[in-house]
Computed example of a mutant assay.
Amino acid sequence: MVSAEQWVVWDSVVEVDVTEGAALSAASALIARVIEDTESVCDLRRGDAEIHAVNLSQGEPVKVSRRMSALLRSALWAARMTDGVVGPLAAARFDDEKIPPVHPVPTYQDVQIDDDIVFAPWGASFDITETAKADTVARAAELVATELECGAAVRIGEVVATAGHCPAGGWQIDVPSDGVVELVNGTAMATVGRSGAADDPLPNETEWEQVTVVAADPLWAYAAAEAALARRIGAIRWIEQHDLRARLVDRSGREYTTENWTLHAPRL
């Protein structure tokens, strides 16, 4: 029997499902602390967030906490795996009058991390919110499973991670705008979609309306889904090359699923 709880934080719906009802309250408290730890270092809306010190370093090495270093490493890993589609640097408009022409536009490849020292080039500004959420989902699920000795499925937004032992029948996870998909123990799922579709002046520029990916961990699931969304028609080959389990829906509502994708009937 699975017990669940939902709440909203960090602009996202957070949900925890556990296989032991008695562990639900403690699981929610653990997850709340993990989220707070992450927010405190990388939420750009918080004036005390550690990420501001990194963004203000502007070409100078800066010492960071272990958590900040881990989150930046995760963001850089996602960038490498997706050829920069999912990157740690915020999209910025550069003012030619303020930025000397000798400074090229920074990319994720220019960022270096040595233990707890981060070096980013002049002009770099980090925004790692989404990869940090995926990283936090993985951390939270593992923590609940380990400390409370139960199975756990943790969701932040549309990124889900599972850990511990599965409930009978596996984890039945909702897929936005569809039914449910079964996740085996230790796998993760992420769904991403285009925003502003109705106002898109170039409707043929993006092939997919929504992409869902199941992978070994939530960071890879999220990064792969974002990369597939950006690759348009090339996403199918890219997904297959990486042997991912995925469902892609185009603007007309037509769907493509990989051979290893199995959806169950929607819950009534």
Results as ranks from 00 to 15, higher is better:
Ala22Tyr: 00
Thr129Met: 02
Val34Lys: 14
Arg247Gln: 13
Glu15Gln: 15
Arg93Glu: 11
Leu268Phe: 03
Asp95Lys: 04
Val102Ser: 13
Gln58Arg: 03
Gln6Lys: 15
Leu76Asn: 07
Asp83Val: 00
Ala228Ile: 02
Ala90Asn: 00
Glu5Ala: 14
Ala70Phe: 00
Arg194Lys: 09
Glu259Thr: 08
Leu89Lys: 05
Leu89Arg: 05
Gly47His: 07
Asn55Lys: 05
Pro167Tyr: 04
Trp220Leu: 12
Asp217Pro: 03
Ile31Leu: 12
Val105Trp: 01
Asn185His: 03
Gly170Thr: 11
Ser40Leu: 04
Ala32Lys: 07
Ser74Gln: 07
Glu20Leu: 09
Val64Asp: 02
Glu158Ser: 13
Ala230Phe: 00
Asp11Pro: 00
Met81Lys: 14
Leu44Glu: 06
Trp122Cys: 01
Ala70His: 00
Leu219Ser: 13
Val211Asn: 02
Arg93Asp: 10
Trp208Arg: 09
Gly164Glu: 04
Ile233His: 13
Pro266Arg: 12
Ala79Val: 07
Ala188His: 05
Trp238Ser: 11
Leu143Gln: 15
Ala223Lys: 04
Glu147His: 11
Pro167Val: 02
Pro266Ala: 09
Cys150Met: 02
Val111His: 09
Val105Glu: 12
Trp238Ala: 10
Gln109Thr: 13
Arg139Met: 06
Phe94Gln: 08
Gly169Thr: 08
Val211Asp: 03
Leu72Ser: 05
Leu263His: 08
Ala22Met: 01
Val184Ile: 06
Arg194Pro: 00
Leu44Ala: 07
Ala161Met: 07
Lys98Met: 05
Val41Tyr: 03
Val86Lys: 12
Asp83Glu: 15
Ile173Met: 14
Val154Leu: 08
Val181Phe: 08
Met68Ile: 06
Ala224Asn: 07
Val111Lys: 04
Ala215Phe: 00
Glu147Leu: 13
Pro218Leu: 08
Met189Pro: 08
Ala23Gln: 14
Gly193Phe: 03
Gln241Met: 05
Arg232Tyr: 01
Ser28Phe: 01
Thr206Pro: 01
Cys150Lys: 04
Val192Asp: 11
Thr131Leu: 14
Val181Met: 11
Glu60Tyr: 03
Pro61Asp: 09
Ala124Gln: 03
Leu71Phe: 08
Ala23Asn: 07
Pro104His: 10
Val41Arg: 07
Ala79Leu: 06
Val137Phe: 08
Arg155Lys: 09
Thr258Gln: 06
Ala75Pro: 02
Gly253Val: 09
Ala4Val: 14
Gly47Gln: 10
Trp122Asn: 01
Ile128Tyr: 13
Ala246Ile: 06
Val214Thr: 08
Gly164Asp: 06
Arg139Asn: 01
Val181Asp: 09
Arg33Phe: 05
Lys133Glu: 07
Glu240Asp: 15
Arg33Asp: 15
Pro101Trp: 04
Asp95His: 11
Thr258Met: 05
Trp122Asp: 05
Glu36Pro: 00
Ala124Phe: 01
Glu60Leu: 10
Val13Cys: 04
Gly59Cys: 09
Glu205Leu: 14
Ala120Gly: 10
Val62Tyr: 01
Pro106Trp: 07
Leu183Gly: 13
Leu219Ile: 12
Ser195Cys: 03
